[in-house]
Structures are given as structure tokens and as C-alpha cells.
């Protein structure tokens, strides 16, 4: 009874907090963020490759063309960086050393995927953009399998 009373008393009184850190307060990770960004990279790459240059002496058309081209490039580069950021979060924060037992190629997969992000940012290469999507799909399956789930790979476009 005395123990119970003392326990209640200590629980009421303020106490210093001691952190039991987690990676995030919520622990919410999802490769969908990387997938959406990678899809944007692929989409912008396709749009850039599909652009047709106007006639050489059409100044107004060149202005529109250059503006559109620059905007597409900016979005492609931004989304490539976003894809890399999201992949690195999964690689360094979600996946732990024990996952290597199930996925021996985990580091290689993420390293190559991050390299593809850089390649897609620098160039306008449809093959690289498609490779990036395949790499993100591989990460998607590794991630959900590690959680004991088999979520389907669904793209927005």
C-alpha cells in the first residue's frame, strides 16, 4: 500500500524526461514519395524530348519555346533531387543493418538508384529515366516486403 502510494506520488510529480529516440516521431516511411518524384522526372524527360524547335526567324515562338524548355528542365532537375532525397531517407533512416540479411543487394540498389537520380538531373535521357522508375519499383517491393506486406506497384500516370 505504501509502495502504491509512493508510486502514485512520484507519477504526479514532475520528472526529467529521457528520450527513447525513434527515427521520427511517427515512424512513417513510404516509397510513394520517391515514386511520385521519379514519375515527374520521367514525364518531364518525355515532354522535353517531344518538344519541337520553332522556325529560326520566329522570335516570339522561340521565346515561348525557351521559356517552356527552361521550365521543364527546372522541374526535371528539382524532381530528380527530390527522388534522391526520398531514396536516401529510406536508405539511411528506414533500412537497418539487419535488413541486409534479407536484401544483400540493398546498398547496391540504393547507390545505383541515387546515381540514376543524378544522371536524370544532369541529362535528358529517356532510358535513364525509365531505369530510375525500375529502381524505385525495386525499392518499393523491398520496402513493403520488409514490412511483411505485398503492396502493388501502382503509378499515377
Amino acid at each position: 500500500m505504501l509502495r502504491s502510494a509512493l508510486s502514485k506520488l512520484f507519477n504526479i510529480l514532475p520528472a526529467q524526461t529521457v528520450n527513447a529516440h525513434c527515427d521520427g516521431p511517427c515512424g512513417v516511411y513510404d516509397p510513394a514519395s520517391a515514386r511520385v518524384a521519379a514519375e515527374a522526372v520521367l514525364s518531364m524527360t518525355k515532354k522535353l524530348l517531344a518538344m519541337e524547335a520553332p522556325q529560326a526567324n520566329d522570335h516570339a515562338a522561340w521565346t515561348v519555346y525557351n521559356n517552356t524548355f527552361a521550365r521543364f528542365v527546372a522541374i526535371k532537375e528539382d524532381q530528380a533531387k527530390e527522388t534522391k532525397k526520398e531514396l536516401l531517407i529510406l536508405w539511411t533512416d528506414y533500412f537497418k543493418p539487419e535488413h541486409l540479411a534479407s536484401y544483400p543487394d540493398l546498398h547496391d540498389t540504393f547507390w545505383k538508384a541515387a546515381k540514376l537520380c543524378s544522371a536524370c538531373k544532369v541529362g535528358i535521357d529517356l532510358a535513364k529515366a525509365e531505369e530510375l522508375m525500375q529502381a524505385v519499383e525495386k525499392v518499393h517491393h523491398m520496402f513493403w516486403k520488409s514490412k511483411g506486406r505485398a503492396d502493388a506497384w501502382i503509378t499515377a500516370s
Partner: peptide, 25 residues
């Protein structure tokens, strides 16, 4: 669970206490 001895030591300053925040443990 902390016994009466531990609680006594806490009152007398030979032990300290703190509250856990987070789910890593």
C-alpha cells in the same frame, strides 16, 4: 516494478528518476 527499497533510496537521494519519451525501447 520499483520496490519500496528503491523508492526509499529515491526519496533519500541515492536514486534518480525520469520519464521516458519515445517508443524506441
Amino acid at each position: 516494478r520499483a520496490g519500496i527499497r528503491s523508492l526509499f533510496l529515491l526519496i533519500t537521494g541515492f536514486r534518480k528518476h525520469c520519464r521516458v519519451e519515445g517508443n524506441s525501447m
